[in-house]
Design a protein around this nucleic acid. Sequence first.
DNA 1: TGTGATAATATGTCTATACATAATAACCCT
DNA 2: AGGGTTATTATGTATAGACATATTATCACA
Lengths: 233, 233
Amino acid sequence: MSPSEANSWQHIQSEVLERIRSRQWKPGELIPNETDLAKEFGCARATVNRALRAVADAGWIDRRRKAGTRVATFPERKAVLSIPVIRKEIEAKGQDYSHDLLHSVTRLPPAEVSRRLNLADGIKALELHTLHLADNKPHAYEERWINVDFLPEAAKADFTTISANEWLVTNAPFTEGELVFSAANAAAKEAKLLNIETGTAIFTASRTTSHDGNGITAVRLMFTPGYQLHMAI
Amino acid sequence: MSPSEANSWQHIQSEVLERIRSRQWKPGELIPNETDLAKEFGCARATVNRALRAVADAGWIDRRRKAGTRVATFPERKAVLSIPVIRKEIEAKGQDYSHDLLHSVTRLPPAEVSRRLNLADGIKALELHTLHLADNKPHAYEERWINVDFLPEAAKADFTTISANEWLVTNAPFTEGELVFSAANAAAKEAKLLNIETGTAIFTASRTTSHDGNGITAVRLMFTPGYQLHMAI
DNA sequence: TGTGATAATATGTCTATACATAATAACCCT
DNA sequence: AGGGTTATTATGTATAGACATATTATCACA
C-alpha cells in the first residue's frame, strides 16, 4: 500500500488495483459505484472519482455513465515511447554525433508523399537526404520531405549545421502525427551508405507530422543493423 | 477550440496548448499561476488544476510546488502503443484468427532467458513455439518461455485451445515489462514456418513481463514481411 | 558571512454540494 | 406486443473553501 492515509486517492487507486489483481473483482465484472466506494473508504465521491479515473486511464477498468464501472476483460497494456531526437539518442550512449547532408533539392514529390503532406497538385517540397553518424560511423540514413509551402522559413534554414530533425522540433510544433515501424531488406543505395551488405535486414521508422491538418514533414529513417527500439511498459 | 463552454477544463487545456504552440508562452518560461489563470478564465482554481495536470501528463509543462509551472524546454513528444492481443489485432482487420502450438517442452532455458525471467540456476521453464495464422496464412511465429516455477497453473493450461498470449493476459497480470523491436534476416527455420525465403527482413518484437521482480514470460515474435507497427503521436 | 529558523507561495489534495450528461430501465399508450 | 416518452441512475464536471506539502525567499542571530 503506497500512501499511508486511508483516504488519499492514491491509496484508493492501489487498493482498487490490488482487488483487480487478486481477482476479488474479476474481469468483466461490475465494481461498486463511486458513492458506495466513497462510503467504504470514508472519503468524498470526488476522491474515489479521481482514483478510478487514474485506473481507467491506465486501462484496467472501463467506465460508462449509468452503466457503471467494470474490470476490463482484456487489460490492454500501454507502452509509452518518448520520440527521441537522434542527436540526443546518440549522445546518451556516450557517442559523438554528426551528420552529413547528402542531398537538398526542391522538387515535386511522389504522389504518396504529396498525400501524406496534404499537398495540392503541382506543389513542390524540399527533399533532404541525411546520414546520421555516431562516432563517425553510419547510424541511420534519413529521407525527408518538408512542406516548404506551409513552412517557408524551412527553405532558408541551413541544414548542414543543424539537422532538419532538430530544426523542426524547435521551429515547427505539430499537433498530430503518425509513426510506422517496419523491417526491410537494404537496397543497394542504403547498403552502400550504411556500409552494409545489400539485403541486410534494417529497421525502418516512418514519421509524418502535421499541424491542424497541414502536413509539415514526412521522414523515413533506416537504421544500421543491430538497432533496437526499447519501450518500458 | 474544442469544448464550447469557456470554463470547462478541456477548454482551458486546449487554450494552454495553443499558447504553448504559438510560443506566446516560450519553452522554459514560467506561466501564470493557477489562481491568476482561474481569474482569467473565470473559473475555479480546481478546474485550472485539472487542465494543467492533463497538460503536464502529456509532457508539455513541468510543475513544481512553489516554483510554479514552466513550459518544457524540449517538448518531447510521446507516442503511446496499446499492446495488442494478436487475435484481436487480426480480427480487427476482418481476418480469421487461429494458431498452431508446434512445440511445448519443460526444460532448462538458455542463460539469457533465465536472466530475463529472473530464474535461479537449474530451474526449468516451459518453452512454447506457436504459429499465429490470419485467414490460415502465417502471420507471426512466436517463441515463448513461461516461468512455471512462479506460475504453476500455467503448466496445466491447454495452450492448443487458447493461445499462451491470451491465457497470460487474463491469468498473469504483470507490474513491469520491457518491449524491444528490431529487424532481422529470417533464418531457415523461421523462413520455412512463415513460408518466406531465407534472409527476408522480418520485424521482431521481444517482450519480457514480470510481477514485482518475478519474471513471468519472455517472448520473441517474428512477423511475416509487410507487417507494420503503427502508433499515433 | 554563513546558517538555521521562519515566513511566504504555488501546487497538491480533500470535502461537500450542485448540476450535467449518457445510457438504461420503466412506463404508458396505441 | 411495439414504439416512443419519461424517470432513474452512475459517471462527469464545476465550485468554494480548507488544509497539506514542497520549495524558495527572507530574516535574525551567532
